[in-house]
Design a protein around this nucleic acid. Structure first.
Lengths: 194, 194
DNA sequence: TGAGGACCTGAATAGGGGTTCATGTTTGGC
DNA sequence: GCCAAACATGAACCCCTATTCAGGTCCTCA
């Protein structure tokens, strides 16, 4: 891309605008956030935005991608040392809730992609679901969980994580995320147990 | 409201515009749908919209409310004859998936409320969750399901329904909804069984 | 049948915001 | 120190659309 920064200064400015975009779009929504809002938050001039990003859509897409990378990293890290799939589920769920609580804006941005960039939204979740499904099939083959439709299960489990994230990590009235994850996992564990 | 129609003709026109709003906002999103798009679809003049609705937000809110009423009706009807909570879960899930497949626009509109009208969105799901939680507590007291955090379980189960609805009822590649509901219910049943 | 309320119309109003660009300013290498 | 490339600026351009309104048409009821 010919808009990539070529100096240290440019790199920092770009990052600064990206962070403000995350914050402002997360708070006010894609449609409600103007470029002026973003550059105001980033304490830079309006036109500077277009030095680093081709359009409002592009910065949005970049944020969705960032959320994808971060979530994959977080989930992989959480599941890394787990002895089996069920324990990986528990750790992954808790890690997801904590991540969402830390970066609510990124979470909200992904949810907006459903309308702003439907293709990106679909790709995002389809990619997760495919990996998830494969994990479940492996676990099933290893006898760690009962037999079942791995595709449906993957989407069901993702739905649990998403909705609990919404309610207990993004909305106010925050609860102890560990307690939430444990309560949900209790149900999941028995639902999947061999 | 002083915009309520007072004749048969007015009632019909209003309903016509409401249906077009559901269709167009569902397809193009709240921000992407213009009043002109809606009235064009309804085959009426632009200004007619404002005879029956005070603003774009108001028609949106009305659609969210409608989805609430319909969903409650559908779920209540589905669970009506169920012998116990688990069977009610299975029937409710299937009924929800079928309803979403029939009225994808209404489903998409509710999801947009997260950004268009956050308060309505919160109220919508909080109301469902409270009722759901109470059902689970009753079932727990009756020994129909195991003990557990009813609040978390309610949100987890709603998450399953939402995400499966998204994937298997709203997106393309439709699958047999009964098979999807059965596969998910198999996990839920064992997750909640006493 | 005709008066008045209900309803319909679409051009005009009013305002917002994405994007561009001409004009500076800063930086890094020589 | 000097210059070319990078970067910064914000007013201006241009398009879009929510909402209004003045001038009609339709329908009911007396």
């Amino acid at each position: 891309m010919d808009r990539a920064p070529k100096t240290q200064r440019g790199t920092e400015r770009r990052a600064q605008i990206l962070r403000s975009a995350e914050k402002v779009i997360g708070e006010k929504g894609f449609a409600g956030a103007s470029i002026a809002d973003i550059t105001r938050d980033a304490e830079t001039a309006l036109g500077t935005f277009y030095i680093y990003f081709a359009s409002k859509e592009q910065v949005f897409r970049e944020l969705v991608d960032e959320m994808g990378h971060l979530t994959r990293t977080v989930m992989a890290g959480a599941a890394a040392g787990a002895p089996d799939r069920l324990e990986a589920e528990r750790r992954g769920l808790l890690a997801f809730l904590r991540f969402v609580a830390e970066r609510p804006s990124l979470y909200r941005i992904v949810e907006q992609a459903r309308f702003v960039d439907p293709e990106a939204y679909r790709d995002y979740f389809t990619r997760f679901a495919a990996a998830y499904r494969d994990q479940l099939r492996k676990a099933e083959a290893a006898g760690q969980i009962s037999a079942g439709d791995a595709e449906v299960r993957a989407w069901a489990l993702m739905g649990i994580a998403k909705n609990l994230g919404d309610r207990f990590a993004v909305w106010e009235e925050p609860r102890d995320l560990e307690a939430v994850a444990d309560a949900a996992f209790d149900m999941i564990k028995r639902g999947l147990a061999p």
